[in-house]
């Protein structure tokens, strides 16, 4: 075992324990301990597991964006109130959008903010407000059986460990093929024009299908709502928490 995989094991172990301490059915003190451990493992991962970028500015920007994205994602799955979950998920989405922008996908970054944070997240918030009268339900404060948190965190750690080891072998030995370094087409200044040109020439049929899919989803959502209103289990006047 060399140094890199030793650091990787430490990071994964720390992250696993932190997730177990953070996930619901936990006390405030355990949650603080989990947050500290999580921060430590995140820091170790940024410094030791990730590869250094070309300049320190790029490095700093990437570290901040990655830390915000991952931290907000962990906070989203560990909050007991669903509204807080949605808000933290929104922060994680902003981090993801910034990561996409940093990697040269301008259109997708804007689309992520507009569609995910603007439309999907607001739909989630609407449904939370409509369906859950008090945000303090029992089932948000507990999980499944006692081992569910540890088992899920272990699965995630094994997944990440395998992926990282496979990647390390790829990245630290040799470059399988050299990317076109002089002028990456994906990073061309006329990004939107190139993207649109590709989209509406090569993928025209897919765009049509996607539009049809959106329409079908719209009609389906409305018809499900109408059908469920007619069902024998009529909606009660006021929902119990």
């Amino acid at each position: 075992m060399n140094g890199a995989s030793g650091w990787l094991c430490a990071v994964l172990l720390l992250g696993m324990v932190a997730l177990c301490l953070l996930l619901p059915a936990t006390t405030r003190r355990r949650r603080w301990a989990g947050a500290l451990l999580g921060l430590l493992s995140l820091l170790l991962m940024l410094v030791e597991v990730l590869l250094p970028l070309v300049s320190w500015t790029a490095q700093a920007v990437f570290w901040v964006l990655a830390a915000v994205t991952i931290g907000a994602a962990v906070a989203a799955i560990s909050m007991t109130k669903p509204v807080y979950t949605a808000v933290w998920f929104g922060l994680s989405l902003l981090g993801t959008a910034s990561l996409l922008l940093f990697d040269g996908a301008q259109f997708l970054s804007i689309a992520t903010v507009a569609v995910y944070a603007g439309a999907i997240l607001v739909t989630f918030l609407f449904v939370i407000m409509l369906a859950q009268p008090e945000g303090r339900a029992v089932y948000d404060r507990i999980t499944w059986r006692w081992y569910s948190k540890a088992a899920a965190a272990l699965v995630a750690a094994i997944l990440m460990g395998i992926l990282t080891l496979a990647l390390d072998r790829f990245a630290r030995t040799e470059v399988p093929w050299a990317p076109a370094l002089e002028q990456l087409d994906v990073l061309h200044p006329a990004h939107m024009a190139r993207f649109g040109g590709e989209l509406f020439s090569k993928h025209l049929l897919s765009i049509e299908v996607a539009g049809a899919l959106l329409l079908v989803a719209l009609v389906g959502a409305i018809s499900i709502m109408i059908q469920s209103g007619r069902s024998p289990g009529a909606p009660p006047e006021r929902m119990e928490p």
């Binding site: 996930l23 590869l51 990655a66 799955i77 979950t85 948000d140 699965v155 990440m160 990647l167 990245a171």
Partner: peptide
């Protein structure tokens, strides 16, 4: 190469965190 490596790891971490949440949480919306 470093950029690809780091992005793949961050993407994998997001996937893994979502997976943990999906397996552990009980609220349908979450």
């Amino acid at each position: 190469v470093a950029l690809l490596h780091n992005y793949l790891l961050v993407g994998g971490l997001l996937f893994a965190i979502g997976l943990v949440g999906f397996l552990v949480r009980r609220n349908l919306i979450v």
